[in-house]
Amino acid sequence: MGRRPVIDLREFGDAFRTDPHPYYAKLREQGPVHRVRLGGADTGQLTWLVVGYEEARAALADPRLAKDTARIGSPLLDEEKIGKYLLVTDPPQHTRLRSLVTRAFTMRRVERLRPRIQQITDDLLDEMLPRGRADLIEAMAYPLPLTVICELLGVPDMDRAEFRRISTEVVAPTSADTEYDAVVALARYLRDLIEDKRSAGPTDDLLSDLIRTTAEDGDRLSSRELSGMAYLLLIAGHETTVNLVGNGVHALLAHPDQLAALRADMGLLEGAVEEMLRYEGPVETGTYRYAAETLEIAGTVIEKGQSVMIGLTAAGRDGDRYADPDRFDIRRDARGHLAFGHGIHYCLGAPLARLEGRIAIGTLLERAPGLALDGSPGEWLPGLLMRGMRSLPVRW
C-alpha cells in the first residue's frame, strides 16, 4: 500500500469530536493505517493512526511497538514527573511491575467490592431520584467510580471538584500548559500520600498492600514506581468507568427499542455492557506506542521512532469484524472488542470497570423506570484519548 498523504484531523472541526465514527469509516475505506496531524493539546503533532480492527488487534500485541519512551529517548510528561507505570514500560520491566501489582489487585479483591459498589450506587440514587432530573455524569457516573477507587486505594476524602478538574485535564488536556500544571499537582499529591502511608503503618487498602508487596526474590516497588502505579490506578480506575456508564446510558436512551428489550429481560445486562463497550467505548485511542524498529502495518511502513495511535473506538465499528457496526444491538455477540485493549497491556482494571458498569446501569434502570434524556448531552471530551461527555441531562 505504501505511504499515504497526511490527514489533518483539525480540518474535521468540532464534528469529529462529537461523532468521529463517520470519519473513521471514511478512513477505513481508504485503508487501515493513516498518517495524521493531531489537534487539541497535541496540535500539529504527526502520528500514525490505525483504524482497522484486525490491524489494531495485531498492533496492540506487537512487541516492536514500544511503550517505553526511553527506547526512543523522549520521556512523557507524566512519566517524568510521576514515575514509571505499566502503560509506559515494556518487558521485562512491564512483566515485573504487573506481577507485583497483580499480587495485590486480585479478582477476589475486586469481587469483595460488589456489596460496597451496590451501596454507593444506592446512596447516590437515593440522593438523585427525588429531584426528578439530574446530570447523570455529575450525580452518579462520576462519583461512583471515584469513591470506589479512592476507597480501594486508601485515598482520603479529597475535594472531588478539584480532583475531577485535575484528572480530566490529565486525560483530556485543553492545552499543554494546563496539562503540565495538572500532572505536577497530581505528582505532588501522590508523593505526599505514599509518604503518609509509609509512616502511618499497615492498613487494609490496595496502596498499602502495594507498599508491602514483595516478590519471592525480595523485589519491591520503588517510591517512584509506587507513585506511578497509584497514578495509573487512580486515573484509569475512575475515568474509564465514568465514560462507560455515561456512554452506555446515553446509547440506551438514544435507542428506545434496546432500552425496552433490556428492561424486559435484565438477564441481557452483561451482554449489553459489552455492546456499550464496543459501540461507544470509554477510550478512543490507546496511549502512544513507538516503533522500536522499522516495521510494516498492513503494508504501510512505520519508521523507527515514529509514534502510533491505535483506534479502539474505530476498531469497534469496523464492518469487517462486526456486521452492521453502527447499529446498537444489546443481543449482539460483542466479544473480542478492544475497548480495554489487547495483549500484555490489556487493562488491569477491566473486571472492576465491568462490575461497576453492570451494577450502576442495572440499578439505575430498575429504580428509574421512566428514565429519559432531558436535552442534549454536554460537549464531548477533547483529544483522542478519552471518549465521553462532560454532562448527560436525564429525567425520570
Rank of each mutant, 00 (worst) to 15 (best):
L9F: 08
D14R: 12
P22G: 08
P32R: 05
A41K: 03
G44I: 06
A58K: 15
R71F: 04
I72G: 07
P92F: 07
T95D: 14
L100T: 05
R103I: 12
T106G: 13
R108S: 14
I117E: 07
I117K: 02
R133F: 10
I137F: 05
E138F: 08
M158H: 13
E179G: 05
I194E: 03
L207Q: 04
D209F: 01
I211L: 00
R220T: 15
R220M: 11
E225S: 02
I235R: 04
E239D: 10
N243C: 07
G246L: 01
A251V: 06
L253C: 02
R263W: 09
L269K: 05
E284V: 10
A291V: 02
A292S: 14
A292P: 09
E293Q: 12
T294M: 11
V301L: 14
E303Y: 12
M309H: 14
A315D: 08
D318P: 00
R321C: 08
Y322G: 06
D324C: 08
F328S: 06
R332V: 01
A339P: 03
Y346Q: 15
C347S: 12
P351H: 06
A360T: 00
G362Q: 01
L365R: 05
A368F: 05
L381K: 08
L384W: 02
R387C: 08
G388V: 04
R390K: 13
V394D: 01
